[in-house]
Design a protein around this nucleic acid. Structure first.
Lengths: 256, 256
DNA sequence: CGTTCGATTGAGGAAGATCAATTAATGTGG
DNA sequence: CCACATTAATTGATCTTCCTCAATCGAACG
């Protein structure tokens, strides 16, 4: 069985809907599980178990493989010549890693596992050969690249147009929706990132992240689990969107 | 002849090196001109002249075509449900437009011409067919998508890690290097964007852009042309990088 | 059980936003 | 071609947000 091949510390688990593997979801897109099934059958990829902290590839390393994330969770870290580090992406089940290396022949980022998981290794050459035989594979590949481009743009927009509190709320909303798309629980998510990592990703300090989370909790938009503040309860994802809109509202509209 | 098919108001013109069309540049990459030649011969795309303000596609419109920019200059504008607008990309000669539409079947941005130019229209279906026959085309396509992903990440890093002045300097450096890669003059570039558009792209206000440019001019890192402040003289691109580093330097290192 | 790392919270300061006034460039109709 | 209207850019003054610095607290781990 493809799902749950590797035990994960992830609190969010696949729901029944994701496991039965119906053909397409309501949007007409193939579900993550179906796409993974297709890829596994067509590509017969090498499977590799990773643990938190493992690096799948590093900036500067010669490109050769693409990676498909079957379980677990990765961060993509961009490095500048002068030593700045920037988390530029988060990868979940069904996402591809390594596209940035195709053009230049070298990866331009580090891909770091944030949790135990399983990654599928596909040689780019072999993938192209398989795509020639099975056009559906090419569609899947292009869709994955396209999704990444579209999401990177949304990230830039978020960083450029939202105040700090809204950015954190939008980050949680995105995380919850990403899990939902994969058929996982979203009422309680485990952020396997420190405040510093979240802040780096969102372009703010760890203190600002902490304050934003405290305010979200005070407004009952999120809750914290009993033990530790790494688990975030999200009773209503819509409330996060509403919070973002409230941050953007021009005037506080004083009483009456 | 492919080059200069359309008269452009762009002050930067192709140099001899770009026009002779030698196979590959020093990095082993195909030159922009060669790639365009290949695409034109293999795809026989429909050519379309655009003028400043023309929209090639809009967010929400059904996806069907990809576009290759042969001359001119585009901005890509992301729109949020609540009405925020964000310039998320700038496109120059040789760049592709429309990748964001592949996954969802609809474009997620507006593509707006900022100058007179020529765009090549390629149906995605026809492109896939051509790629099946000519694997080199697929390489070109994937390289273009990969470059876009890598550059989007650099943009995010710039916005997240650089102070305002450095962001503007880095923006000019990127613009100059983009022109240089395409064999164009970089000692004087014409920004066909208002300060407001630049500020939007860089995540700051138009006033901050103006102040940053004034400081760059005061430090002789850039110069302004005689008439109008839309043309920026860049005697030394390296000076822009040095300025960025100076902005990042922790301590001013008081005299001794 | 102390050590370490991460998170929270507060106080003060700085970068950049906002508001406002002026100047320069561009365009328009007479 | 010029007077006028319009849009873009610059610059200054003030204010807000967020960063920086610092202290405290909590959880995890050996």
């Amino acid at each position: 069985m493809l799902n749950a091949a590797i035990p994960s510390t992830n609190a969010a688990v696949p729901t029944v809907q994701a496991q039965v593997g119906i053909g397409r979801d309501c949007t007409g897109q193939q579900s993550t599980a179906d796409t993974l099934k297709l890829l596994c059958e067509q590509l017969r990829p090498q499977r590799r178990v990773v643990h938190a902290g493992d690096t799948i590839y590093q900036a500067g390393e010669r490109f050769g493989n693409l990676y498909i994330l079957n379980s677990g969770f990765f961060k993509i870290v961009n490095l500048s010549a002068d030593g700045r580090e920037q988390v530029v992406g988060l990868k979940f089940r069904g996402d591809w890693l390594g596209f940035d290396g195709i053009a230049s022949g070298r990866y331009s980022c580090d891909a770091v596992a944030m949790d135990t998981g399983e990654i599928w290794v596909v040689s780019y050459e072999a993938l192209l050969a398989a795509c020639a035989a099975h056009p559906a594979l090419l569609q899947v590949l292009h869709a994955a690249m396209s999704r990444e481009i579209a999401h990177d743009r949304d990230s830039l927009m978020s960083v450029c147009t939202l105040p700090a509190d809204a950015r954190v709320a939008d980050f949680l909303r995105y995380w919850a929706e990403t899990l939902a798309e994969r058929g996982m629980r979203t009422d309680e998510i485990t952020l396997r990132m420190t405040r510093a990592e979240i802040g780096n990703y969102l372009g703010m300090t760890l203190e600002s992240v902490s304050r934003a989370l405290s305010r979200l909790a005070r407004d009952n938009v999120i809750g914290f689990a009993t033990k530790g503040r790494r688990d975030v309860q999200i009773p209503d994802v819509g409330a996060l969107s509403a919070f973002v809109q409230r941050c953007l509202a021009p005037a506080p509209a004083m009483l009456q």
